[in-house]
Computed example of a mutant assay.
Amino acid sequence: MSRYEFEKHKQPYLSEDELRRRLAARGSNYEGLMKRHKIHTRNLESVTEALRSHGVEVKVIQKHEYTPEKVNWADVIMSAGGDGTFLMAASHILTRKKPLIGVNTDPSRSEGYLCLPKEYSGKFSRALDRLLAGKFRWRWRNRIRITLEGYQVSHIDPVDLDDLELGAHDHLGPHRDYRYQSESDDERLLHPSERSLDQTETTVLPIRALNEIFIGETRASRTSYYELSVDGRRWEKQKSSGLTVLMRRYNNSLMFDASEPKMTYTVRDPIINGVFSVKNPRGFAKRITIRSRCWDACLAVDGGFSFQFNDGAMAYLEILPEDALRTVILD
């Protein structure tokens, strides 16, 4: 989805002239957006035409139409955009058997590190010839599995951060706990540890993290309070601006090298005083466990989806071989 398509999807009631004026009022250039949109559309059409010319059945869908049912229908998933589109496409692929191939449709404005080389952006037919001839190698990229444990965690729905518009009057809306609307005031005020043990659940989130996970308060100005255990070591109570976990380490392209099954974590702006301390504000890990002590917190995956993660909830982060994402490298 191009930025122009995103704006149209977000504001379908606006005419083109109204959209132009709305963008201008925000300091954005309508003509520039249309130019990038046409480049994206032209390269997308070259992909679909090349595939159909070889008898491949193709379904072109937008981000808001991307569902598990569509993923199950396809033999191969292809993302048309940049790294953000690739990450979004990867999030719903839960098996290592289904390949994901990324095409950078605007290489002058997008790095496309996860996509095919930029030389194929406007000439996808060349890449397709190599793929059909078997002149490629499979590459499995490790991902992070997230398991939540806590009060009715299986009822927590993800918030789509791309479609989210937070109003100044209601920053809590996306993660307001609607599970408690039918409860009495007394039940609603119970600490998670005081609720019935029968309502404690464990669930694996239906999304895998390919790039990064952020855990912390939804309001950036608030201090995040949680307990952290790395690779089974003793728990450490921490206060900070949140915790970031990503795959392995950054390389010179400012992306990750996921060739080794390890995560790297960073405690952001840790508070260190007579009560709280952080022995290792950053490091590598095979398994990370976090217990939330926050009251309006989220667990955000690859910058695309956010899950409520409030006081008492626990998250287990680990890398499993069966969660690896199948991608290609052209020889």
Rank of each mutant, 00 (worst) to 15 (best):
S2I: 03
R3I: 04
R3F: 04
Y4V: 01
H9R: 15
H9F: 15
K10D: 15
L14T: 14
L14S: 12
L14I: 11
L19H: 07
R22D: 13
A24K: 12
A25S: 13
R26Q: 15
G27Y: 05
S28A: 14
N29W: 15
Y30E: 02
Y30T: 06
L33G: 00
R36Y: 01
R36G: 03
H37M: 00
K38T: 11
K38M: 10
R42I: 10
R42F: 08
N43L: 03
L44W: 02
T48P: 03
L51V: 06
L51K: 09
E57A: 15
V60M: 11
K63E: 10
E69R: 07
K70E: 13
W73M: 03
V76F: 05
I77N: 01
M78K: 10
G81M: 00
A90R: 01
T95C: 03
T95E: 11
R96F: 01
L100F: 00
V103M: 05
D106V: 07
P107S: 01
P107I: 06
R109K: 12
G112E: 03
C115R: 08
E119C: 11
G122T: 12
F124N: 05
A127L: 04
L128G: 10
F136P: 08
R139Q: 14
R139G: 09
L148S: 04
G150V: 01
G150D: 03
V153G: 05
H155N: 13
D157F: 11
P158C: 03
V159D: 11
D160Q: 03
D160C: 06
D160R: 07
D163M: 09
L166T: 11
A168M: 10
H175G: 07
H175D: 09
Y178V: 15
Y180V: 15
Q181V: 15
E183F: 15
L189W: 11
S193C: 04
L197P: 02
Q199K: 05
Q199L: 06
Q199H: 06
T200P: 00
T203H: 12
V204W: 00
A209K: 07
F214T: 06
I215Q: 01
S240W: 04
S240Y: 04
R248C: 09
F256R: 14
D257L: 08
A258M: 07
S259M: 04
P261Q: 10
T266P: 08
R268M: 09
I272K: 08
V275K: 14
V275H: 13
K279Y: 12
P281R: 12
F284C: 10
F284V: 12
R287E: 08
I288K: 05
I290Q: 02
I290R: 04
C298G: 13
L299F: 09
D302I: 00
D311F: 01
M314W: 06
A315R: 05
I319S: 08
E322V: 11
V328M: 01
D331C: 08
